[in-house]
Simulated assay, not measured.
Amino acid sequence: MSAGRSVTVRAPAKINLHLGVGAPREDGFHPLMTVYHAIGLYDDVTVADADDWAVEVSAVGGVDVSAVPLDDSNLVVRAGRALVAHHGVRRAARIRVRKGIPVAGGMAGGSADAAAALVALDRLWDLETSDADLFDLAAGLGSDVPFGLVGGNALGTGRGEVVEQLPGADVPRWWVVVTAPAGLSTPAVYRRFDELSPDAPAEPRAPHRLVAFLSDPADAVAPLLHNDLQPAALDLRPELADVLAAGEAAGALRGLVSGSGPTCVFWCADADAARAVAGVLTEEHGSDRVLVATGAVAGAHVVEYDR
């Protein structure tokens, strides 16, 4: 990216502390009742003026970015086009994405990029988009994009795009993240969910107990973590069950599949416990695939602003 005015925005990965899934709606989307939690794995999105839209993607650590599109189908370009259409201006940008969030890993990396792009381009062009309009644009891009704007802990309803911030974000949480050598298709996981859960309710049950316990000690929260998509992900990728069992045997309070998978995440009592669990899992999976992260962290925010 050439020298000149640019803005860099950082956005976090998400974990679903609770993911309740209902039967498909008439529009094909599944109603969700989820508790989002942002953790300290990040993508950085840098934008600068250009004559035409362009995307560059690079990896942080061992993240495989080979499947990330570099054309207009990338969510960052869709975000940019939606923003300029909203304001009725003719602009384009070159967008550089540095990915530290696993790709197709159930951690909403693409959605984080879209949220970051909205914020970065709004700052770059001094558009002063209202928060309400940013959330509307984010919701039009994808179910997880609005949460990418707010971070912390949040309740997600609708198809996940309606977010309400929750307490407990100031309580440090420690996670071990184990990525998979290959991604898992979110639509495929939902199709398998439908096959495995023909009697899914029209509306999933609200996680009242988890919300009430969000500020409590880690061992009190652990039994309340839940993911309705986990059986479908494990059915498609049975080896993930061994990863979950190994992490819990190593001392994690709870292991679960993140979102639609295949990333596995482990809720740990504290920093020492997380490092111990990571050490055991690294022996099997290697240091590139085992990460330690904290939560909850802020949503999309400017980290560099050059004029």
Rank of each mutant, 00 (worst) to 15 (best):
G106M: 02
E304G: 06
F29M: 13
A218I: 10
W174P: 01
L253S: 05
D133F: 06
G279Q: 05
P181V: 13
V84T: 10
D64H: 08
L244F: 02
F213A: 12
G261H: 05
G109A: 00
R209Q: 15
T34V: 07
A104S: 11
G279P: 01
V77F: 01
V221D: 06
A298Q: 12
D235G: 06
S143T: 08
A11N: 05
G20P: 00
V47G: 05
A13D: 04
L214N: 06
A252W: 01
E304I: 02
L124Y: 06
A112E: 00
H18S: 12
P217K: 11
D131P: 14
G110L: 03
G183D: 13
R25M: 05
N153H: 15
G183W: 00
S58N: 13
H37Y: 10
V55G: 09
S73G: 15
Q165M: 14
D170V: 15
C264D: 01
E248R: 13
A188I: 11
H30A: 01
R94A: 14
R91S: 02
V303Y: 06
G151F: 07
A232R: 03
A3H: 14
V60Y: 04
A222V: 11
W125F: 15
G142Q: 05
W125H: 09
H86V: 04
S58G: 12
G259I: 12
G168L: 08
G168N: 09
A93V: 15
L244W: 05
P223N: 09
D49T: 13
V145F: 01
A13C: 10
A59N: 10
D199A: 15
F266R: 02
M107T: 01
V57W: 03
L19I: 10
Y42H: 08
G255E: 04
P181T: 12
L32M: 04
L17S: 01
V243Q: 02
P187Q: 02
N227I: 11
P217E: 13
D228K: 08
S2N: 14
V57L: 06
D133H: 03
L225C: 14
Y305L: 05
D199S: 15
V45E: 05
D71F: 04
